[in-house]
Design a protein around this nucleic acid. Sequence first.
DNA 1: ATTGACAAGTGTATAAAAAACACTTATAAT
DNA 2: ATTATAAGTGTTTTTTATACACTTGTCAAT
Lengths: 224, 224
Amino acid sequence: MQVNKSYYKKQGIHAITAIFTVERGVPKVLLIKRKNEPFMGEWCLTGGAIRNDEDLLDGAKREIFEKSGIKDINIYEFKTFGKVNRSPVMRMVAVGYIGVIDCNRVNILKETTKTSNADWFRIDKIPSLAYDHEEILASAIDFLKQKIVESNILSSLFPNNFTMPELQKVYEAILGKEFDRRNFRKKILSLNIVEDTNLTMKFEGKKPAKLYKFKDNIENKSVF
Amino acid sequence: MQVNKSYYKKQGIHAITAIFTVERGVPKVLLIKRKNEPFMGEWCLTGGAIRNDEDLLDGAKREIFEKSGIKDINIYEFKTFGKVNRSPVMRMVAVGYIGVIDCNRVNILKETTKTSNADWFRIDKIPSLAYDHEEILASAIDFLKQKIVESNILSSLFPNNFTMPELQKVYEAILGKEFDRRNFRKKILSLNIVEDTNLTMKFEGKKPAKLYKFKDNIENKSVF
DNA sequence: ATTGACAAGTGTATAAAAAACACTTATAAT
DNA sequence: ATTATAAGTGTTTTTTATACACTTGTCAAT
């Protein structure tokens, strides 16, 4: 088969990350308003083209930092998007990643990007997005739902202490269904990924709730 | 941040597929002997660079066909490989796929490639491979083991009828451990992915074995 | 025709995991 | 003291997984 060399010219790789958080029980995703063409002014996921001198994963993290100011985030590859016309400028294949970040860092981000073009959107109220990012995001949410139980991907949401009802609410918000309080607690404790801190947290008028924390030495193996 | 445009030049995408089969209870993978530089004369997985005018998945299948003659194969993305120096020529990111093919088509392949440079290798006896294909293959085997039970990925191994002991032997060969005959049969039947054909197959001197077949309407959702 | 070797077929009992379910307790407001 | 609120806990039932032993159909040898 005769192949024209130009078939292979002008290809590039996007590293696109859907960064999730949960604010007061509401799952949200970080979107960026584009400053350049194509799709100037439209919202999109964090990410961009990787460079020749960086590993794909490093490039994904660099793009996250440049677009949002977020550093030190763990991300997980979930799917690749390779349709011919997914980018109007040149042939780009996108590798999709998922990241999860805790509420405190959400606030820091808000200050950094106060005057900039980043914001959190409820995952059930997403505007139309640039490129094929709607498809990528839908796929990311799907993946997150499937992996949430068997993985420790949510540990990033609670870098410090948390109560069981708090954790349960996050699970329920993301999966969109409710769990029995007693069975949920039993399940989480049996996974052996959290430990009791012997501290409690009082909410007004309610019985104090025990504080737990994720164990430091959890491996990421469970995510894939 | 000032970015030199040349950072983005000369990038490309590899679509690399590990094609597995099981011959007489032995899991094997298809390797190709490279005819060109780089790595001329070395073994590698099927695959190559995708073109601008084809979807990534189509490109992966085209490469499979060109290198091995295999058509109509279902493949599943499992991981992307994006280290800077994984290709010595130019910056290439590889998207890894898994395919499984049945024994009959293995024979057809053998004739097509009789004088060519393709062969099946036991997965426990792999020679050294070009590029980072050893890493890709190891990762593919890992993925196959993890997904084999919860997916219908093995249905391609038995396009027609099969007996329970045959299927069990394949599971045991890939996972490297043995199952109880009664429990295995119960498990497979409970998954509701196979149906009884009311046929039997005789092996010499042994009680005839019932023939089953995978249901036609199995969805691929279970693979991911 | 009987016997033996071989691998296929089947059912039940036990253990482990998941699901269902109700009452008690600590706090803050009245 | 009373009440409202949400947190905490334990047991029963159901489902699923695991462990385990005997019977059956074919072929080959006698």
